[in-house]
Design a protein around this nucleic acid. Structure first.
Lengths: 300, 300
DNA sequence: TCATGATATAGAGCTCCTTTATGGGAAGGT
DNA sequence: ACCTTCCCATAAAGGAGCTCTATATCATGA
């Protein structure tokens, strides 16, 4: 078996054509290089160098070997550089999966900040339903997932609540006078409702809230994007069910009005799901750290 | 600095996902593998494996590294296979340079035999003038060269005579009666002469022989190919100056007749030129051996 | 709770790489 | 011719660090 360290010595010797110089480059002594080359030649049972009076020169066989070794070492060097990049986050990638609505309204500012701090880290986002996100976390396809809680326990996952989410009903100018007194679920159900598409956890959550109060609702307008939901509400097309934090600005500006329900909408939690038993990549760990630094302490 | 042997251990560990198995594959103990991986992680200052209860699993960084290491090792393996081929002559190449006329009439049977014995060795031939051949030998572009002697001494070359060459004058049927008695150079110069093109060493040799006897000649027909020279002579177009061994058959068959000169044509030598101080490649050494086995002992 | 199968750690041992010292050959200058 | 210089090979001693044995520790599953 060829001792791999020999290849390094071979490489230097071949490039310099001088065992003494090769030794200097490697910070070892010339006999050491001599010895290594000799070992190598014995192992391969062929001569790699011609010994000339003014140094060494590759034999044809040596030249052939050099071609392979050079390429091989170039790869290893590239690998080590890559590792170094990953280490100091000047490379690598951060892969986050999240429920559709969380990206823009929750994650975006952090991604922006992260990207500014580590511009070399490639950010890959994938969205999907909560079950798809957790699956990707388990597979290792994403570093971690952000999901709405509660979700099913899974022995392979750690799930940690990191943020509260307070939903609310909002309407445009037309609902200004409706916004004074608390409304029953039934009352709210009478308005044209602007809801996220069926399948989203927010939609399920809203339906659940209504159904608990024996109100069956039907979305008048169903959209895939929370932004559009808010825009439509501003235009007065109906009452939207959205997270309060997404419309803080609009409420303050008087573009939207909150319709308070008689029965409080439960607080929801945003959770972060990661694989148990695995250390996240450095890129991911840094992001996690950044996220947590900003979060109020929560009882999980 | 990463000790390269670590990579081998890393590779096995990554592939098996089990340090103990990796150790078995490498015929070392598990703590040895543990130790190596740890060294490596410290050297790169990042974690390469997640330690799970049922083995190890690559981290993202580890996966990235594995890609490089696998490719790199594949190359080294390929290199070792190549060396093995070169060693047992199931690969590699034999590069011979020779003066034009030598290939067909001298070298061909050996090349044929060599190729039959080592069909995997690629044979590359290059022809040119003697000076070009020796130049290629010095550059290492060819393993060795076959040339007509004498040639200039060169400190970088070893030149060894390996075969004698006896030139002669031959003519066709028309010269049958001329072939009885020895002829002077002057007599021979009167015949239409069939000679190799100017520039060839055979041509120079012939001219030299004539001029030493104060005969100035002029080629009536000048050809680049010895075969054509012989054909023309058989057709009776004149007297050709060729090596006797090339026309042995024709002389025996009575297709050509030798015109004996009064002054003997000196014996020439075919020599083999190789670089001094360098061992030939194995492919070349074998050919050289095969060549020499067939040669009569010669005083150089 | 015990057995099993992993990895981590500690400490001793020994391999084999490295070093120092030396020799010899070739090239180049005097 | 002789001396100097440069370079590689060899011998023998020394030691760094890999490897081994033994053991601890932890997780899993029966």
């Amino acid at each position: 078996m060829i001792h791999l360290e020999w290849y390094r010595i071979f490489l230097h010797a071949a490039r310099t054509g001088n065992l003494t110089k090769a030794a200097q480059e490697l910070y070892i002594t010339q006999p050491s290089v001599s010895y290594a080359i000799k070992q190598m030649e014995q192992a391969l049972s062929l001569k790699l160098f011609h010994r000339l009076s003014k140094g060494v020169e590759l034999t044809e066989e040596g030249k052939a070997l050099l071609a392979y070794v050079e390429q091989s070492f170039a790869l290893l060097d590239a690998g080590e550089r890559k590792m170094s990049q990953l280490k100091d986050l000047t490379g690598g990638e951060l892969r986050i999966g999240a429920s559709d609505s969380l990206f823009k309204h929750f994650l975006f500012p952090y991604l922006d900040k992260y990207h500014k701090q580590y511009p070399e880290v490639r950010i890959r986002l994938s969205h999907g339903k909560t079950s798809e996100i957790t699956q990707r976390v388990k597979e290792g396809t994403v570093d971690f997932g952000l999901i709405h809680l509660p979700t099913a326990e899974d022995p392979l996952l750690t799930i940690q609540a990191i943020m509260t989410l307070q939903d609310c009903f909002v309407g445009g100018e037309a609902y200004r006078d409706k916004a004074v007194l608390p409304l029953t679920a039934h009352d709210l159900g009478q308005f044209p409702l602007l809801l996220l598409s069926a399948g989203s956890s927010t939609r399920r959550f809203a339906e659940h809230w209504f159904s608990q109060q024996n109100v069956t609702i039907q979305a008048d307008i169903e959209l895939g994007s929370i932004d559009l939901l808010i825009e439509f509400a501003k235009l007065g097309l109906g009452v939207a069910f959205v997270s309060k934090s997404y419309v803080t600005q609009e409420l303050a500006d008087g573009l939207l009005y909150e319709l308070k329900p008689t029965v409080a909408i439960p607080t929801r939690y945003i959770g972060i799901a990661a694989r148990r038993d695995t250390t996240p990549s450095l890129a991911a760990a840094k992001f996690h750290e950044m996220l947590m630094a900003d979060m109020p302490a929560l009882v999980t």
